[in-house]
């Protein structure tokens, strides 16, 4: 899940960048179309991540030998 959040953050950053590039108008028509395609793909991906995600909770416990062990707990 942490990976999903990382993907989400990176996608949002790229999206912001794309919007800025498109709005600046310094890019060629061809590049604009390519950026637009990339942007809409990213935004769809972000929406999908948000819609489908479920909070994952793990508990860090002291194992029998004192080392911490992770244990997944059902979401309350």
């Amino acid at each position: 899940m942490a990976k999903k959040s990382q993907t989400f953050e990176a996608s949002m950053e790229r999206l912001d960048e794309i919007v800025k590039l498109l709005e600046n108008g310094d890019v060629s028509l061809e590049e604009s179309i390519r950026l637009f395609e990339e942007g809409t793909k990213l935004s769809a991906q972000c929406s999908k991540l948000l819609d489908e995600a479920e909070l994952k909770v793990t508990q860090l416990m002291q194992g029998p030998d004192g080392t911490p062990v992770e244990q997944e707990i059902p979401n309350a």
Binding site: L50, A53, E54, L55, K56, V57, T58, A76
Partner: peptide, 26 residues
Amino acid sequence: SAGAALHDMLRILGQRYPLSEVKLLP
């Protein structure tokens, strides 16, 4: 791990940003 505080936090985290992963250190 027993308190209402944990329950409240998990509920709100799940609603707002389920993409993150929660590690509970009881």
